[in-house]
Design a protein around this nucleic acid. Structure first.
Lengths: 118, 118
DNA sequence: ATCGTATATCGTCGATTAACGATTAAGGAG
DNA sequence: CTCCTTAATCGTTAATCGACGATATACGAT
């Protein structure tokens, strides 16, 4: 079917989302933020006090996490209340964990029969 | 204990490793490479044929994955045989999955009792 | 209306990333 | 030894990242 190859299939889209979420996870400060949010679910600006980073830097990390869908932010007067997105966490698990499981099985299978050294 | 605060604790080190592995996972091409390696465990240069990327670009992605510990490469004559690292996959699962589980629980708990709107 | 707090955004800087083509290094085949 | 294949590396480019200080915005309190 020529002309239709530009439409990405479902797994490609899922991998793109998986990559985007993994990328957002790929910074120690952002993992620390997610851990903080899990502890209290909404410490708002308290996060800045917990991390050795400037307020603007934390705000940027929060934006990255929000863009990737990891967290949501609700305005609460002059402050913002962030919380983990339940949907994001379960989506991520739903896509990643089967892949990891499959990869691990692949590793175990190829431990003895390596196709490079027959 | 003054003077000892520069030594990172165990969880900090684990988070750093988690972040590094997640970062390496944070590109669609690299996820595609890992999927390919899981399918055959060692396609060597075949990966280039599977992806719409130049050979040098694929080589770079392989280097990123190798540096992060996701894969290992063994020389096999003029070619290189890459395979998933079983240890890396299980390490990643061991650190990430408990965290995800905990985050999901935190989400469920705070769904009704939000600390921002009492 | 003004002040103070909280947070998002802007502008900047150096470092890193992603992509490519070209080149080099290392083996195997003739 | 010479050619060919394979793959890593080099050099370049544009884009993005990570950090910061400074600024702007939004709101509550006085």
């Amino acid at each position: 079917m020529p002309g239709l190859t530009t439409i990405p299939d479902a797994s490609t889209i899922l991998d793109a989302r998986l990559a985007a979420m993994a990328k957002a996870l790929g910074h120690p400060a952002r993992i620390a933020i997610l851990r903080t949010l899990a502890r209290c679910s909404c410490i708002c600006g308290e996060i800045v006090k917990e991390l050795p980073l400037a307020q603007s830097t934390v705000s940027q990390h929060l934006k990255v996490l929000k863009t990737a869908g990891w967290i949501t932010g609700v305005l609460d007067g002059p402050r913002t209340c962030y919380s983990l997105s339940a949907e994001a966490v379960s989506d991520f698990r739903f896509v990643l964990e089967p892949a990891l499981e499959q990869w691990q099985i692949a590793c175990d299978c190829s431990a003895d029969s390596n196709c490079c050294s027959p």
